[in-house]
Design a protein around this nucleic acid. Sequence first.
RNA 1: GCGCGUGUAGCUCAGCUGGAUAGAGCGUUGGCUUGCGGAGCCAAAGGUCGCAGGUUCGAAUCCUACCACGCGUACCA
Length: 556
Amino acid sequence: MKPELEAKIAAAAHELFNVGARVELTRPEEQFGDYATNVALQLAGSLSKNPREIAEALTVKIRENLADQVSTAEVAGPGFINLRLSDAALRDAAAARPAQPLASQTFVLEYSDPNPFKPLHAGHLYTTLVGDMISRLVEHAGAKTIRINYGGDVGLHVGRCMWAIVQELGGEHPEKLNDIPEADRPKWMGDCYVKGTEAYETDEAAKAEIIATNKHVYELHNQNDHESAFAQIYWTTRQWSYDYFAELYNQLQVKPFDRYFPESEAAPLGLKTVKEQLAKGVYRESDGAVVYDGEAEGLHVRVFINSEGLPTYEAKEVGLNLTKWQDYHFDESIIITANEQQQYMQVVVASIAKFAPELAERMRHITHGMVKLEGGKKMSSRKGNVVTALEILAAAREAGKASATNPGEDTILAAVKYAFAKNRIGGDIIYDPQESIALEGNSGPYLQYAHARARSILAKADAADTELTDLQPDERSLLRKISEYAETVDRATAELMPHHICTYLYELAQTFNRFYEHNRVVGDERQNLRLQLVKSYADTLKNGLELLGITAPDHL
RNA sequence: GCGCGUGUAGCUCAGCUGGAUAGAGCGUUGGCUUGCGGAGCCAAAGGUCGCAGGUUCGAAUCCUACCACGCGUACCA
């Protein structure tokens, strides 16, 4: 509907002034109309004419050419043209589905990326939910999606944790792992990670041992060792980490990952590639390490292979992305991480661009901020006071119990997901459990309630098929808001910004409540028409929430 | 120091590809109320859009400088 109108208005402008105009319809305040365009203001400069004169002429033309869709077209202010749709056109707009601009494309999306041997903190929860929402948007827009979860099962953090695990076990005694109850394992491993990290920073002897342990883990992978005592400890506790992740994803009801990609698998190809490209001059040696010098491009120097000969995250990232490219030949590869990783990713991409430009240009890095608790308290994974992902969920449940209603798990999840989703991706977000679970205000539970209430109206009467014509003002306002759905989703998809959907759904619910306050549905002489509006509203809410991975039950 | 990001109402945030009177929620104040799920609706108070310039018919939005905070700045990820 919108693109069609834009094209017709551009054609009208061309007819009148013989210029190519880029017409973009916006949604003005309702008092002004359904759509507005500032094309006359845009053209005023190049045509050397008064914008209002242009607008007047264009308005006459629009009334002629678009008579079947536009009921009124008026000039306002300095030269805006405000359009009001006919009831039929508004009905069509409300029925329009979001576009499928990514049809037949393949998107690889990498997100969540928890590291085995490290606790899942609140940031992982955020990145997991954001990734789930973005991948849903992309999928909804027609793309084939491949969800990838990449995690560091090798590297210094593993050395830290493994060192402490061996200490805790009093030596390489894998059998002693059986003594640790299943429920205590995540906490136990988290404690080991903290212990190893502290030792690394404060104890020189321990630091040397940890570096050796790290190397030992790489060797274990190279030799495919599953037998030695050290290897048994490693594989067992790595699995504990994966079990712990699976438990979280299960609780969150996010879409399953298509592939779990451990760093150990990316390392060999990364190492090999960096060495090959070292010979071709893409990388260079420096102090015994292999680096990419991004300074000429305004970036940093980053180490890809350290002086121990081990690949750093950068080299593994090279291996990972080459593998993605070889396996999927995607149209776009989206990587979602916290924004602290932005600059080193730029270096990685800059280096890849030197030997695989077709891959580099398809990579897109989306970064988000940190999760903080109310009061702006920061959380650090290096210290003991980590707020974990599961603790965030527990905080939401706790806030729910304290409230008058006793929300179910669906509502708890809606609360957390919506609280994260409604912020624009990029900046830090502050999570407030009470606010997220509240049934009033801009919250997930509020929208679930709004949906359930609409369904309960629909359950009271059957709606016969009626044309939505001769709409009364409140009815029309609701239909107008519903008609914004497809455009909103299109925008959220184009920008990969799910929060637009949140903003819209909340406005939609408010519009409905205003309608509902003053208009009887069941039992009214306009019952059929209004039931259809209510159904359309409820369906729109449900569709929008689903795009965010939030359920919309008929009853709460 | 350099790079990236953020700065909008008491709090939490939208708005940022330039447009009409800068919008929501929470909180505060006042009103509606035996309701088709009132978990709502109506209204009020609350803003130098970090500061200063610039571009433009028009700037929260673009540009420059500055201030504050965050992240990054070679062998962590």
